[in-house]
């Protein structure tokens, strides 16, 4: 009887720890989901004298992808972003980067972005709660953040989470 108890407690502990190990501590639930996308007015990556604002995307279902040329996982997810850019406009937010590094990077790897904005100081990224590039947001027609992915997007995540959401948001009103 006592042995049964000890074994039961042990197994319960194992189950608890196993569940804990499966959780990803990097996935911090964003408090921004369901809230309006923080406003920004940033210069374009390719044209510093022109600016772009999140307001320019009102009425569209769009994605915001935070990336940098120094970020290796960004290069890994780049084909996925390129694929996603066919399903809807992706705005690239170039994070704490140098223009002379970022522009050749886009030339080399392809530029899937509807527009590329430049956040050299990472100030706007703080408003978006970015703490590890790449990060990707889905924003609806009214400018509300509906989804956030931290870390590189994989094809599976894009197909199972992002694309259905884009479809749903585009269909509904």
């Amino acid at each position: 009887m006592r042995v049964a108890w000890v074994v039961a407690i042990f197994l319960a502990l194992v189950a608890l720890l196993a569940a804990g190990l499966r959780l990803n501590p990097r996935e911090v639930p964003s408090p921004l989901i369901g809230r309006p996308a923080p406003p920004f007015e940033l210069p374009l990556l390719g044209a510093p004298d022109k600016s772009f604002s999140q307001k320019d995307m009102l009425g569209k279902v769009w994605m915001l992808n935070v990336w940098a040329s120094w970020c290796a996982p960004c290069l890994v997810e780049h084909p996925v972003i390129t694929q996603l850019s066919k399903a809807g406009p992706v705005v690239g937010l170039n994070y704490k980067d140098a223009r002379e590094d970022a522009l050749p990077w886009l030339k080399r790897n392809g530029d899937p972005f509807y527009a590329s904005v430049y956040d050299g100081a990472g100030r706007i990224a703080i408003d978006y709660g970015v703490y590890g590039v790449p990060e990707t947001y889905v924003i609806d027609r009214r400018g509300v953040i509906r989804y956030k992915h931290i870390g590189p997007l994989t094809r599976d995540i894009a197909q199972q989470e992002v694309e259905p959401l884009l479809k749903e948001l585009s269909a509904g009103g």
Binding site: V28, P29, S30, P31, L32, D127, G129, Y131
Partner: peptide, 8 residues
């Protein structure tokens, strides 16, 4: 900070 990064 909490509005951006959460209670975490």
């Amino acid at each position: 900070l909490v509005t951006r990064y959460g209670d975490f």
